[in-house]
């Protein structure tokens, strides 16, 4: 299912990701956000330097870290048996277009629960001055062979 010894493991920092204004619009429209929320003049009137990314946008950065886990032979994570259990985003500040972000995933915990494993991943997202912008916390349930 997943190797419990990866608890505490920290994966390498991702390459820099430049948050694009049109990527924000694409993601916002795909999540049914209003056109007002992707209006540049409105964002600037609210005091932002550019468009604000939708609250679930950091999932894109979390994915970079999860790909490392999936490719890690030590983790032994069978992704075909994974169900997304919980997700949380905690913001220190909003993500705006023009941000140059990197992310770093660590394994917060691995627990066994009724034949399944519950793995909690923390992904810290930093800007180009290395300040924490957002933490994405994801709980994945890895179903056991009999589940």
């Amino acid at each position: 299912m997943v190797n419990p010894n990866i608890q505490g493991k920290r994966y390498p920092r991702s390459a820099a990701y430049l948050v694009g204004r049109e990527k924000i619009r694409e993601f916002a429209r795909a999540t049914f956000a209003s056109e007002e929320s992707i209006d540049l003049a409105a964002a600037k009137a609210s005091g932002h330097s550019d468009l604000v990314a939708p609250p679930t946008f950091p999932i894109v950065l979390q994915e970079f870290g999860l790909k490392l886990v999936i490719a890690d032979p030590e983790a032994g994570l069978d992704f075909s048996r994974v169900v997304h259990g919980e997700q949380k985003f905690v913001f220190q500040r909003p993500i705006v277009a023009g941000d140059l972000l990197t992310s770093e995933l660590s394994v917060a915990s691995v627990k066994s629960l009724g034949g399944n494993h519950m793995v909690v991943f923390d992904t810290e997202i930093f800007d180009d001055s290395n300040s924490l912008v957002c933490t994405a916390i994801s709980t994945l349930v890895v179903r056991g062979e009999d589940a």
């Binding site: 999540t31 929320s37 609250p55 679930t56 997304h84």
Partner: peptide, 30 residues
């Protein structure tokens, strides 16, 4: 996608606030 359901569920709150930058924390269980 669970993340699509999570993503659209917060849209009414963002519209009410008039600014996605006012969201401090958002969590769900699927």
């Amino acid at each position: 996608h669970g993340m699509l359901t999570m993503g659209l569920s917060i849209d009414p709150v963002v519209s009410w606030l008039g600014d996605a930058g006012k969201i401090l924390e958002y969590g769900v269980r699927f």
